[in-house]
């Protein structure tokens, strides 16, 4: 059975230049291991292929049971000079949360 990430986790997006930073935080800390197994950097890169053109690096933070995805070349050239509506990519947390994983 597939579930949407948003059913089990929440996220906030941040930016640095042309880099998009997405946290992924399970509502229930017990789901952290499951997220680590299912939400790999490769899967996130594939899911965000229309948005992220560079590498995706995943950091695991067991201290707060959270994942962090650092996505390169993801903000159409960068916050200050991009022509997109959401120059900071702040709405992109909800793009990550659209991803589906296997239960």
């Amino acid at each position: 059975m597939k579930v949407k990430l948003y059913d089990i986790a929440h996220s906030r997006a941040g930016d640095k230049g042309n880099t998009l930073i997405l946290s992924l935080i399970p509502f229930n800390e017990e789901d952290f291991a499951w997220l680590c197994k299912e939400v790999t950097a490769e899967k996130v890169k594939q899911h965000l292929k229309d948005i992220v053109t560079g590498d995706v690096i995943r950091y695991e933070l067991p201290n707060i049971s959270s994942l962090l995805f650092v996505c390169q070349q993801a903000l159409s050239g960068g916050v200050t000079t991009s022509l997109t509506m959401d120059t900071h990519g702040k709405s992109l947390s909800y793009a990550l949360l659209e991803m589906e994983i296997l239960r």
Partner: peptide, 16 residues
């Protein structure tokens, strides 16, 4: 915990 975790990781490009 949820609000604090979201903010702790906000705009962090390398948590180490």
């Amino acid at each position: 915990l949820l609000t604090a975790k979201e903010q702790l990781l906000y705009e962090v490009t390398n948590p180490y």
